[in-house]
Every structure is written in structure tokens, then in C-alpha cells.
Design a protein around this nucleic acid. Structure first.
Lengths: 171, 171
DNA sequence: CCGATTTACTTGAACTATCAACTTTCATGA
DNA sequence: TCATGAAAGTTGATAGTTCAAGTAAATCGG
């Protein structure tokens, strides 16, 4: 009778097959190259890294162009600490401003300034073009669909709070 | 007769459709969460970020466990500058050592030390397990195959030197 | 109402990344 | 042989990220 591999840590590691390795390497290469590419594109054209651009986008899409810090951090999938630093820098650039939350004195809103909105509008075309050229223009519609499904699955699996992943008795 | 959109910069931006946007957002979320996840896992367990782990892997796979700096940088898809700093840190940790290249006095080899190899062996199981849980365990074989193809295409499209992308007369 | 937690957010230090500038060596072609 | 330019790699300054620890306000359980 075999022991069920409850604690994989101790068991023989489930190595990747050759094919899985090829997939994984391609993943690493593509994501590294792409993130670098977009970072450079945006840094050069808009003067900010890709993540910061993403923050402005989230704000622009939000009612009254504002979001609570924690909310923004969740949407952008970054830590609150990282966001604090990022917003500090975006504030210095004049693209975001902070506002106190009236209902919760601990709370802060990050608000997209007009200048921030302007920067976004000005550089959005160049950015989507870069994304298109790097990704969508190269993939068939089926591949695009597939990519969406796959990334959705992976993202969901890693979503912080994994709904009690380490608290199995709560499931 | 319509003008061909040769210089997309000036034309109406080719915005992403709603579906394309969803795909793109999922991509961003998945890659952000995954890279963070693996960084934390490796930082906690092995004391180094994911990229550095990748460097050790490349070295371990190479003959005599060594690579020229430029070669390693190319394989890992990072700049030589970044690599210089990274190797300096890995040297400090005792996992890599530099060696002069006899045939080219400008050249340097990065060599994986025994200690480096040991660290790698020790933490590889935990790392593949993390990759499995986050990615392969969640995808069907078809999805895995599809992911490989897609990432290969994207990576190739971004490969530095794009084989004369800006030298169209050479194509 | 009060003490204990939790939540919201910030801070500073240590670390990593980027960019441009620099040194050294190699290759090329008069 | 010599000058010129390219290649290999490093460096230092600046910017961004992480982690642990911190403050202050809200909430929860008696």
C-alpha cells in the first residue's frame, strides 16, 4: 500500500518533464522580455515604469478617478507598501494626489490629477500599439482566447487569500 | 483609396477590444502574481530572488558549470549590467565565482561553485513544486501545449536583435 | 465602555534594477 | 603598424522593491 503524497516536500520531487520544461522556459523568457520591453517603452515615452502606468489606468477607470489605497493595491496586485512608495513618486510627478477619506480617518484616496489623466491619454496609444505588436498581432484568435483562459486560471490560483488554502478545516 | 497604416503612430490608435482587454488584464495579473509568488518562495527558502535562481540553473546546465558573462546574460534575457551586479551578489553568497577567460583577456567566466550547486539541489524540489502547483497542475495538457506555443511566439518576437527589424532592407 | 485585535497606511533600511559612462582588450583595414 | 571602432565587462548614481516594524483609527467581545 502506497502512502498518499500528502506532504510533497518529503516525497520524490515531481520534476518537470522535458516538454513541461520547454513550456516553462518559454514562459520565463516571454514574460521577462515583454515586461522589460514595456517598461522601457513607457519609461522612455511617458517617464514611468509599466506598473505605475497600470496604477494610473485603474484610477482613470474608477468613479471620480479615485480609489482607496488598499483597493488600488488589490486591483493592481501589489502590496500596500509598494503602492505607498509608488504613489509618493506619482505625487511628486503631479499625476496623483492623496486625499483623506472622510468616513474613515485611517483611509486615503489616491486621486488621478488632470495632469495625470492628460499624460495617460497622451501615451495610451503608444502603449497599446506596443502591446499589440508584441502580443496580439502575433497570435491567432484561438491563441488569444486560450491565453486569456490560461492566465485567468493561473491568476485565480494565486489570488491572495486563496480562500483558506492553508486552513483546510475551513473549507 | 485608403492609406496603408504604415506609421501607426500617427493614425487612429488600434485600441484593444473588450475581449482583448480582458485577456491582457488576465495576463498582467497572472504574471505579476506568479513572479511575486516565486520570488517570495525562493527568497524565503533559498535566500535569493527568482532571477538569481535562474542564473544558477543556467550555470548548472552548462559544461564545466561555467558561462561567459555575455552568454549567460543572453540566456537569461537580462542586460550585462544587471548580470554584473547579480553575479557580484552571488559571489558574495559563495554560490558563484568569477574566472578569467584565458583566450580573451576582456572575458570573464561565471562559475557555479560546489556550494552553489548544493543550494540549487537542495531547493530545486521546492521550487518545481511551487511551479507545478501554480501552473501545470491547473492546466490541461492542451492548455500547457498552447501556453508553450504562445510564449514561444511572443518571446521570439521580442528577441533582442529582432533580426533587422529596423533594417527592413535587409529582410 | 474598555481592552484587545484588526485594519489602513506609512516608513526606513537593505536590496535589486536601470542607465549612461567608463576601461580594457580585440578586430579591422588601410 | 597604427588608428578606429566594436566588444566584454564593470561601475556609480538614481530609482524602484521588499520586508519588518511602526502609528493611528476602527472594530469586536465582553
Amino acid at each position: 500500500m502506497k502512502t498518499a503524497p500528502e506532504s510533497a516536500r518529503a516525497d520524490a520531487p515531481r520534476w518537470l518533464t522535458d516538454e513541461e520544461q520547454r513550456v516553462w522556459r518559454s514562459y520565463i523568457e516571454a514574460t521577462t522580455l515583454l515586461e522589460d520591453h514595456l517598461d522601457r517603452q513607457l519609461q522612455r515615452d511617458a517617464g514611468m515604469p509599466h506598473v505605475y502606468y497600470g496604477l494610473l489606468v485603474k484610477l482613470a477607470e474608477s468613479p471620480r478617478r479615485r480609489l482607496r489605497m488598499t483597493e488600488l493595491a488589490k486591483l493592481a496586485k501589489i502590496t500596500r507598501s509598494r503602492l505607498s512608495h509608488a504613489v509618493a513618486r506619482l505625487e511628486k510627478s503631479g499625476w496623483v494626489r492623496r486625499e483623506d477619506c472622510p468616513s474613515d480617518k485611517r483611509g486615503q484616496f489616491a486621486v488621478l490629477t488632470d495632469e495625470g489623466y492628460e499624460v495617460l491619454s497622451r501615451h495610451a496609444p503608444g502603449h497599446v500599439e506596443a502591446v499589440r505588436q508584441a502580443v496580439f498581432d502575433r497570435l491567432t484568435p484561438e491563441q488569444q482566447k486560450s491565453l486569456g483562459e490560461i492566465m485567468r486560471i493561473v491568476a485565480e490560483g494565486l489570488e491572495p487569500s486563496e480562500a483558506g488554502a492553508d486552513l483546510p478545516w475551513l473549507r
